[in-house]
Structures are given as C-alpha cells and as structure tokens.
Design a binder for these strands. Structure first.
Lengths: 208, 208
DNA sequence: GATTATATGGAGGATCCCTCCGTTTTGCAA
DNA sequence: TTGCAAAACGGAGGGATCCTCCATATAATC
C-alpha cells in the first residue's frame, strides 16, 4: 500500500530497535508531490476515468513512477482527497487567527462550496474513493468536524452564535446543500443558503 | 430468458406530413431490453467500470449492437437508472391499492433502502450518471417526489399522519440517511431511522 | 416471394492498464 | 571527493477494453 512517505520535513525518527533506515530520497518526495498535483488537475478536468498515463505525462514522470507511488487508481484518488481535506483543515486553523469568529466560519463554509464547484470532475471520483475505503471516510468526517468545531466553538464562546448546534449538524447541512450540485445555478443558491444559515446561527434559539 | 415481447402497444402514429415510417423492428426492442437487463446485473456486481463487452456478452448480443442502442457508457447508465426509478414509481402505484396507508409508505421507503443496498455497485455509477445529465436528475426527483406524494397524501387524508410534511422533505431525509452507505451496518441503522421517522410522522406536530 | 430499410455481430486500430527490469540517481561512508 | 549499493526512475510490451465500420442477416412491407 501507499506508504506515507513523509512529505513534510522528514521527522527523522530513529527506529530504536533494529536497523537505521536510510533517509528517504528527495526525488521520491518531489515526484510524489508532482503526481498528486497533476492528478488533481487531470481528474478535475477529465473526471475520474481520466487516463493515468495522462497524469504521469502531466506530472513529467514515467508511468512506472506513478504506479510505484500509487499502486491503484483508488490509492491515487484517496491521496488527492486526503490532501484536499487536510487543506480545508489547515484553512480553518488559519482562519481561526485571522478573522472575526462569525466571519471566519462563513468564509470556511464558502471555501467548501467553492471546492465542490471547481473540482466538479473530482467529486465523482471522490464518491468512488469514499465508497471504497471507510477509514478515509472516517478521517474526512473527523477532520472536517474538528475544523468546524474550531470555528464554531470560538464564535459560540464569543456569544455571537447560538449554542445549540453541533459541528456535525453543520457538516451535514453543508453536505446536504451541496448534494444538488447538478442543476444549473446551484452554486449561487448554495452560497445564499449558507449565508442565510449563518445568519440564522447568529439569532438565539426561537421559543419552542 | 424469454422476455415478454411487446412492452407497450406501439402507438403507431402516422406522421401526417411526409413519409410513413416503418414499424420498428421486433429484434431491436428485444435486444435493447436484454442489454438493459444485463447491464443492471453486470454493473451491480462489478461497479461502474465493468467492461461493456462483458455486458454485451451477458446479454448474448454483439458489441456493435450494444453501442448502437447506447452510444456511450453514460447513455447506458442513464437508461438503467431511469428504469430503476420508474419501477419505484410503479411500486408506489401498486402499494397505493394494496396496503394500509402508513404501511404502504413504510414499505416503499424500505424498498428504497433495499435498492441502495443490493445495487451497491450501481450507486457509484448512478452518481456518475446524475452528474452528467441534469434532466435525468429532474426526472428522478419528479418521479420519486410524486411517488411519495401519492402515498403520503393518502395517509394524511386518512388522518394517520401529520399534515405539515412535504414529499420533498421526505425524499431529502431519505437521501440524506442513505448518504452514509459506506460504513458497516449502515443498512440496519437506516431502516431503523426510517421506521422511527415514520413513527414520528404518525404523531401530531408538537407544540411550537 | 421480392424488396429494402433496418439491425446485427465482430474484426481491428487506437488507447489504456499495469508489470517488469535495465538504467540512473541519491544518500552515506570512507 | 570518491565509490558503492539501496532506492527510484522510465518506458517497453503483453493483455484488455474501447468504439468504429461495414459486410451480412433479418424483419417489415409490397
């Protein structure tokens, strides 16, 4: 399977027990990154059935290299998807410090909508990816829930948003809203819905 | 596999202006039906990437025949999907006369869950199909909404179900519930949710 | 039965999938 | 720096799939 070859600055763990593994090669990491970038572009444009050879070509890498890093098409999907999700997580981290609480949440939600919009072709691919691997699904759910929780908690703590909504509720709402991403004009509609939803969050719970 | 030959009685419209079009050939209709049946089976088992040549083989038909009836993979998906949706519509029609109002609705909803379960492989294919064609989506939404409306209206009229829920609400709920069809044990969970939901429908609206 | 529009099936060129292996690059030690 | 071996690279190639094209077969009509 796809070993997580440390893309980030290699932590350089010294395996205490046995052998000292050689430091991972630089070109390997570089090429892995290139393939991921190319895959994102190619799948976005051509949908999930796009040719893997086209991906390798775009990445400027031999087909063999692609297959060594990602033994199956699904593995490649999964890696691209994980990356995308992680970036959303990072964005939350960033917005937490940058913007006013409610505004931060609003922006993050909009970024999600945008992602669905730009990566039209990817979406179908992702559907396939999540169908295959359920810990990918778990990871996604976890990461996004935490991202929302981060922004939501801050806004609640600041008293700017009602307290009776969970991060899961918001995630589900978002996913549900985007589920209709086939019909024309959906994006404007969803952005509007998101805004309304955020506005609604700002009011205290109605009497019930 | 002896298919009952004449599906619908051919309407035989006489084009008034120009030429009298010849009656469509019987083998064409028969083969088309065979291919659809085979496609359902093959895609269910092998997912959306299954070989079209395998479909043709299963149908006992040449590959050329398959391509004439369905010029693209998507066209085939779409046809299979439409058929499935129409069958759900027909089921509603049937349940309307057969069972007690609430029970009829409950059964129809469960049939939906079952369809998602059995046709696991198909689901991904359908995601692709709906992504491609938006009038397919419209047709689906329309047909299913009407099916629910049929069963719902009867139950409401009989005073067995609260009146402040729309068919769209129910469809959305159902879709949302099935959206999680990746994790293990989802089906039991969704069936339970559906039952609870139907139970809930039977109570009058809570004070608000 | 003859005619003809229509449907059929499968050969075949192009493409894609994925494995295998000889060559090249990189990290490490001397 | 130089040398060496582990690790990564690239792409050839066998097999499978896609989809077109057309000679042949067949149903509908005369």
């Amino acid at each position: 399977m796809a070993r997580s070859a440390g893309g980030e600055a290699a932590p350089q763990q010294a395996a205490p027990g046995q052998k000292a593994p050689r430091k991972p090669r630089a070109d390997a990491a570089r090429n892995r990154e290139r393939v991921l970038e190319a895959a994102k572009a190619v799948f976005s444009a051509g949908g999930p059935e796009a040719s893997l050879e086209a991906v390798a070509r775009t990445a400027g890498v031999g087909i063999g290299t692609l297959y060594r890093h990602f033994p199956t098409r699904e593995a490649l999907f999964e890696a691209v998807y994980r990356r995308e999700v992680d970036q959303l997580g990072d964005l939350a981290e960033q917005l937490k410090d940058d913007a006013a609480p409610v505004e931060a949440l609003r922006r993050w939600l909009r970024a999600n909508v945008e992602l669905v919009a730009t990566k039209k072709g990817m979406i179908a691919a992702l559907a396939l990816a999540t169908t295959g691997s359920s810990d990918l699904y778990a990871h996604t759910f976890d990461r996004l829930t935490k991202a929302i929780g981060l922004l939501l908690g801050r806004a609640v703590a600041a008293g700017e948003i009602r307290a009776d909504v969970s991060a899961e509720d918001i995630l589900r709402t978002l996913v549900g809203m985007c589920y209709l991403h086939e019909q024309p004009g959906w994006q404007a509609s969803v952005v509007r819905l998101v805004d309304i939803f955020v506005d609604g969050l700002c009011r205290p719970a109605l009497t019930r």
